[in-house]
Each structure stands twice: as C-alpha cells, then as structure tokens.
Design a protein around this nucleic acid. Structure first.
Length: 569
RNA sequence: UGGGGGAUCGUCUAACGGUAGGACGACGGGCUCUGGACCCGUUAGUGGGGGUUCGAAUCCUCCUCCCCCAGCCA
C-alpha cells in the first residue's frame, strides 16, 4: 500500500483513514502543490479532548504530508467571544506540541468578506432581506414543505447595494435587515433556503474592535476564509455535512473573483466528533459545569478540557497517542474510557519513577526493631522492566505506616497481604509478621504490632517467600500530603442520553480528598515530576495548589487493579 | 412522510472483488519484592433478506436501525 507520505505506517501521526485516502488521490492527481489544513476554533470556550482529536488530525496530516496547518480563530460572533479564550486555546494547542504555520483570525478578513458580499449582490446572488427573524423562519418552510420567497427577494442590485452599505454604516438597528444568499427556497436541503450571510450586531468585537456593526455568519465566513488562506482540505465534523452545499455554492460563485484564485479551491470533509464515556464534550455543557460551580473552573482536573487534563497530570504525548489509537471515521461513536486510560498509563509507565506513598495510613510498630534506629535503604526508582536506572534512599525505623486496605482481620480467600499471624514483604525492605491487632475503645483497629525478620533484605526468609508485597512509609520521616483522588465525572457512560438534566448524573465521588504520607525523597525532586505511587496509581503535584511545605498531589490515573476486579466476581 | 450521512468483535478502527487484521477490554497461563508492567494463548464481528460473481464487508436491490438539517450560533 504505497502512500504519498512516504512514511512507514508506524511513523505517521495519523492512522490511514478516509481522509488520507482522499489526500493521497488529490496528490496523485496533482490537484494541490501541497496540503494546507487549519484548526478553526471559535474563541467562546475552552478546548477539550474532542478538539484534540481535530488538532491531531489537522496538524498530523500537515506533518505527514509535508504541508502546513494554520491556527485560525473563527471569530464571527462578537457576543460570545473573548480574548481569554484565544489565549487559552493558543496555550492548549502549544501544550499539545503542534506548531501552527500561521496564527489567523477570520475577523481580520472582515473587509475582504464584505467585498465578497458586494460581489454576490452585484452578481444578483445575494439580497438584503427586511423580514424579522421570526418571519424568515416562517418563510423558510419545513423539511417537508418548501419555503416561500421573501417580498424583499427581488430588490434591485442598486437598492441592495445601498441597503447593505447602510447596514455597514450603522444606519439600522440590530435585526432590521440581513443579507441573504439567493439560492433556492424550495431546496430539499434546508441549509440552501437562502441562508443568512450577514446580520446587524451593534457590539464591539474583541479583535476587530468597534470597526463593524455587521458580522458575517459561519456559513459565509468559513469557506471564504479557507479560500483566502489557500486551504486544500477543510476538515470539520459531521454536523456540517449539510452546510457543505453552501460551502460549495459560495466557492463556485466567487472563485476567480475579488482576488480569489480560480483554482485550486478547498473542499470540505467531515469526520465523526469524539464522544467519550463518563464525560461530556460539548462547549455548552462544559460552560454549564463551570458556571454552575459543579467543578472548580475550566482547569478542574475532572474536566475533559485540555487545561483540565493538563492540570490532572496527563501528558500531551498521551493525548496524541490516544488520538492516534481511536482513529478517524464517519461513524458516530463513543469511545470507551479504558482506551483513554490505557494511553495515559502506557505513557506514564515509562516516564514515572516509582516511590512509596500511603493514602489511608495504618500505623505499624515493629516491636523487635530498636527504638532510636534509622536505616537508609536503597530503593530503585524503576522496576526491572523499565530500562532506566536510578536509586534513592528510603528511611526505615520502628514505626511505619501501611495502607489500611493492606491489612484484613478476616481476609477473603486469595488475599495476599497482611493478616493476623501472617507474613508480608514490605516493598524494598523486610518481611514482617503481624503479631497483634491493637484496637481503640470503639473497636476500630488503631495499630498493628509486628516483628520484622532482619535477614530478609534482598532475600527470602527461611519459611519461603511471602505471598504479597505491600507499600509503606517510615512514620517519623513521612511527608504529609493532601492527595486528590479523581474518578469519572459522571456516574453513567452517556450523561446526555436518558433525558433530563445531564448534571443529575454527576458522580458525587468524582473527587475524594485524603491526607496521606509520601516518602521524603520526593522533596528532592522537581515539582512537576510524575510518579507512580507503587500499587496505587500515577500522581503528580497539583501545579496550582501544591506548595513546598504543603504538598498537594493529584491522582492522574489508577493502576490496573486485577484484585478488586477479581473481588467483584 | 423531505433531504443529507452512517452501520465490521463488548468498544474504537482496518480491509478498496481474493485467508475479516490491529488496539482497548474480557478470559486462561507464564513471570514478578508493585495483585503494576511484560510475555504467551483464547474468546469475539461484517444489521437483515434477495441478487451479481469461481469468489462479496466490499458491487446491485429491498428492508431495518442510528445520527444531522427548519439560529440573524459555530
């Protein structure tokens, strides 16, 4: 299977899909000198991993085919857009590790777009309509009934030109007139029933300032922006399939005019947007979660926003790998969260040094260990299967903390951890035996009295290897830390299904905060270090809230856990 | 009831008239001072009916189901 990319499949940023096939054919036919794509966010919300799919696709194709990809802000609606979102989007795109050829704004084309509109009017292909928005809606008909022409549809070119100029000059209030394409009121495609091209909005624009009081709509601005930039392949999502007819109509009527080349021209292709289990990927719903204080901001680590997953600790490489794995197609689909988590774990497994931390401490006293003694044990950062080297010292003394879950007074079958009278290996340290369970007045387990076997560093005791190894932290040296345990944001796979308000399905346990202990070596590390807390998961310090004397860790993702899985059966 | 799209293992995705493959998962085994990782194996799919063909996921036909379209949002 030869390809125009000349790249072996494994080195491609984008798995072959229906779009790469189109590009291969276009290149074979020499329709374009090079491929040019664009990522066109509207700056009215934060980017999320659905956008990451589009970013990886558009920038990935540019890389694979030696073309280029622009970052273009599709900013034609002054009432919802702001510079905050532009800055956030740029930050997120850069963080993802892609590089745009040019940073562009549709609003920079407003003057050219105006000229295109005048050209359409001059050609008798657009007219100023003075119906109200309700009337326009009525006149448009329904999916089964054709629309009927507005009484203003046959205004003269001169009158249209005059009116349109006055629209621009500010002579009319909002909604008084619109500019419409003169296409076909009876079209089976509703989008073609004389779509509105311009509306009057007396509002300043965050980028264009107060230069305009008329603004183009997406259907007008987008294809022409593509054409201005020399885009070859304009990739968008499935819900724009019907809009493609307007896209083509505009470019066919304007190509070769107003400075646009006759050829080549861009073509639009649509792929299925990403849906991910247990979360929502729609700007409207994300805004609602943020504004409704269901989460603590756009960068809340539970959110699927790029700023959220970044703060959570997920790396851009993991996001890109995820996008590579899920592929691109036209089928509406919903991706299993497991695919995302697997990509995150695969990335972190080779990136994160292992350290010991205890989230729900249970004190262990080693009754046969000398009171004032402290040993420094050498512990490797990496397991045998990760080809990296490095060690740190971990202190060991008479009092330790272990995980409460790692001790059971009445264990079920198959429990390989500490039990009364049983042995267990302390990771990188000794084998201990539990001699006594000490309880408080209310009958809860307060601490464990154990004895250690001094001859078990690096070797097994005479009685044979214990069944389990558990993690621990030396009590007098333990570093206290707040640990934020994140779980899925919603309790159901598809919060948008089933009717009702989607916020009703929010998972009340999406955030659990515990006070735990981490081994003291982490104090020596750069704060952005990502760790595996052995047997618990991957963690890093929260970039916003963690302080040198007041550590806060986020759980990025858990480890696969075949024990609890087996327990459920 | 109109138009535009889409249907392949549980999930995502390949195949371009010639052995239905991969990833995630699940299941079983191995290894292991992490119940992690890794290794091996197994499971499991072409929505349905006709037709063309030596041969069909792929071409034709009928049907079913799903998504999108009646914003002066994108």
């Amino acid at each position: 299977m030869s390809s125009e990319t000349n790249l072996p499949t494994r080195q491609r940023r984008v798995n072959s899909n229906f779009i790469t096939e189109i590009i291969d054919e276009d290149l074979r036919q020499r329709r374009y000198a090079k491929i040019v794509t664009r990522f066109p966010p509207e700056p009215n919300g934060y980017l999320h991993i659905g956008h990451a799919k589009s970013i990886c696709l558009n920038f990935g194709l540019a890389l694979d085919y030696g073309g280029e990809c622009n970052l273009r802000f599709d900013d034609t609606n002054p009432e919802t857009e702001s510079i905050e979102y532009v800055d956030a989007a740029k930050r997120d795109v850069q963080w993802l590790g892609v590089q745009w050829a040019r940073e562009l704004y549709a609003s920079d084309y407003f003057e050219r777009l105006y000229e295109f509109a005048v050209q359409l009017i001059t050609d008798g292909k657009a007219y100023v309509d003075s119906l109200s928005d309700e009337e326009i809606s009525e006149y448009r008909g329904t999916v089964t009934q054709p629309g009927k022409p507005s009484p203003y549809r046959d205004r003269s070119v001169e009158e249209n030109l005059e009116l349109f100029r006055h629209m621009r000059d500010g002579g009319f209030p909002d909604g008084a007139h619109v500019l419409r394409a003169k296409i076909d009121l009876a079209s089976r495609n509703m989008k073609l029933r004389d779509p509105v091209l311009y509306r009057i909005v007396h509002a300043p624009h965050y980028h264009a300032g107060d230069a305009w009081c008329i603004y183009p709509l997406y259907d007008f601005a987008h294809p022409l922006s593509d054409a201005i930039e020399g885009i070859s392949h304009s990739i968008c999502t499935l819900e724009f399939e019907n809009n493609r007819a307007i896209y083509d109509w505009l470019l066919e009527n304007l190509r070769g005019k107003c400075g646009l080349p006759h050829a080549p021209r861009p073509y639009q292709y649509e792929f299925a947007r990403l849906n991910l289990d247990y979360t929502v990927l729609s700007k409207r719903k994300l805004i609602k979660l943020v504004d409704g204080r269901h989460v603590q901001g756009w960068d809340d680590p539970r959110l699927p926003t790029l700023s959220g997953v970044r703060r959570r600790g997920v790396t851009p490489e993991a996001i890109r790998e995820f996008c590579y794995r899920i592929g691109v197609a036209k089928t509406n689909s919903r991706v299993d969260l497991g695919i995302f988590e697997a990509a995150v774990r695969d990335d972190l497994n080779h990136r994160a040094p292992r350290v010991l931390a205890v989230l729900r401490p249970l004190k262990v006293v080693l009754t046969n260990y000398p009171g004032g003694k402290v040993e420094q044990l050498e512990a490797p950062y990496w397991p045998h299967d990760v080809p990296k080297e490095g060690w740190r010292q971990v202190p060991f003394s008479r009092e330790l903390y272990i995980e409460r879950d790692d001790f059971m007074e009445h264990p079920p079958k198959g429990f390989h951890r500490l039990v009364p009278g049983g042995h267990v290996r302390l990771r990188h340290a000794y084998v201990i035996r539990c001699d006594e369970v000490v309880k408080n007045a209310s009958g809860e387990i307060a601490e464990l009295h154990c004895t250690y076997d001094p001859d078990t560093i690096g070797k097994n005791p005479a009685g044979g290897a214990p069944k389990g190894t558990i993690h621990w932290v030396c009590a007098p040296h333990a570093v206290k830390a707040e640990v934020r345990l994140y779980d899925r944001l919603f309790g159901v796979a598809d919060p948008e299904a089933g009717g009702g308000e989607f916020t009703a399905y929010l998972n009340p346990a999406s955030l659990t905060v515990v006070e735990g202990y981490v081994e003291p070596s982490v104090l020596q590390d750069p704060p952005a270090t990502r760790y595996q807390f052995e047997r618990l998961g991957y963690f890093w310090q929260d970039p916003e809230d963690s302080r040198p004397g007041d550590l806060v860790f986020n759980r990025i993702v858990t480890l696969r856990d075949s024990w609890t899985k087996a327990q459920r059966k």
